[in-house]
Design a protein around this nucleic acid. Structure first.
Lengths: 239, 239
DNA sequence: AATCTTAGTGTAAATTTAACACAAAGCTAA
DNA sequence: TTAGCTTTGTGTTAAATTTACACTAAGATT
């Protein structure tokens, strides 16, 4: 026990909630734990902080070690510090989340993981530690972000069709979206660039591909704001 | 050095960014540090995590010890884990923020603090540690929240007038707001309850007092969502 | 009683939303 | 080859909201 301090310290770890979209449903990436505690349980990839890395670097490192993913754009989600999170003792975990193109990622189990696998968000296995709480927090945050930011392009390919985008929104928000109104709304933002290519081999009218205009997005993010509750659903306003 | 572990561990702390509003400008509560490092510098109240408390409980405890504030509603802001945050060694800090009624709080220095004092957000002294980064993060988050949530009532009294509310919004967002349109918007949400009382002793028409309907707010928070970028300012949409 | 200052209400045009209908384009199967 | 099926893309219209204003009201001061 070579590391000694004047006061007790919790261990610090990072965990990653990685969202992917397969064209039909929203998934998260889980690993099966190779070691105790919770051996054999599924959990989010993560591990202990080392002294020469930030919490985000730790998340990125553990993600690569356990799943092979290297280029996810991580965003800090929340820090969990419950007293009984981990049977080994006090562990404070900084959770991160990321949206990735599921198709471009082939998760490979490594290190502490028996296997890495995608699970649909509405049928997860029993999770280790307090990862169920982490998952619910991530889901909530993801939905919030979808409400007021036209994000989610990280979840699709470099190019995508509007119908795909609608399905993504419907999956995440778990509610029906009017295609036609949605198209207009999203196109009016000017964030999508129309490409020449179309889908092919489909037994119906082919869809056009679009690309996300990241530079315009950054520009807009700086300026747009202030609307004070964007709009109140009529049904609620009446009450 | 009685606390020993197999692997090195960072210390974990909590810091609190407390926002207050004095009717004219937005302020934050700072303490002057009694001890090194950064002795004599101003900093956000905070301190080290103890083993029998969560990170939020730690924030609440330190806030009380150093400023006497007991009933702030803390919200987790962000966790800072930079390698060089603290000259004493590796410290990971979980930052919280809260909005309080400045008038109802008389900050009292205690414990590690020489004094506790409100500072206008646009003229802060030099801050200890990376607290300048924490402040900018908090300010950004506060503005974001004001954009899509009719919050900020914690910053005003139990009862308040619409002109006060406008001044609050103008202070936080640092931009002009059209009184008349703002009134309509905010009233339409149904979140404000008109009281009988009016301001008195003012050399002009007295303003009416309103009260925030917290239960309706909770109800709305559950249901409202999904607008996909509330609205795009015309000036930007044109580009 | 006139004046000054801020509070509260109203109006009209432009924009956006919500809820639809319909034409277009590709494959399939008779 | 053509009718039929499916999904995509584009309009249309009424209702609601936003924006940008002008005007009246109420209290204190001179």
């Amino acid at each position: 026990m070579p590391y000694c301090y004047n006061y007790p310290r919790p261990a610090v770890s990072s965990d990653c909630v990685i969202f992917g979209f397969d064209g039909f449903q929203l998934n998260v990436l889980l690993i099966e734990r190779k070691n105790d505690p919770y051996k054999g349980y599924w959990a989010f990839p993560g591990g202990f902080l080392e002294m020469d890395e930030t919490s985000e670097q730790c998340a990125r490192r553990e993600l690569e070690e356990e799943t092979g993913i290297t280029d996810a754009c991580l965003e800090q989600l929340y820090t969990f510090s419950g007293l009984e999170r981990d049977p080994r003792g006090r562990v404070v975990s900084v959770a991160y989340m990321a949206l990735v193109r599921q198709s471009s990622i082939r998760p490979v189990a490594g290190d502490d993981a028996l296997q890495a696998q995608w699970f649909p968000v509405n049928s997860l296995p029993k999770l280790a530690f307090d990862h169920d709480l982490i998952f619910r927090t991530a889901m909530q945050r993801l939905r919030q972000k979808f409400c007021y930011q036209p994000i989610g392009y990280e979840l699709l390919g470099e190019k995508f069709t509007l119908p795909e985008l609608v399905r993504l929104y419907e999956s995440v928000m778990d509610q029906r979206v009017d295609r036609r109104n949605f198209y207009r709304k999203i196109l009016r933002t000017g964030l999508l660039v129309l490409l020449e290519e179309r889908t092919s081999g489909v037994p119906h009218k082919p869809a056009r591909y679009y690309q996300f205009d990241r530079s315009r997005f950054e520009m807009l993010k700086k300026n747009s704001c202030f609307s004070l509750i964007s709009r109140l659903p009529e049904t609620l306003a009446a009450k």
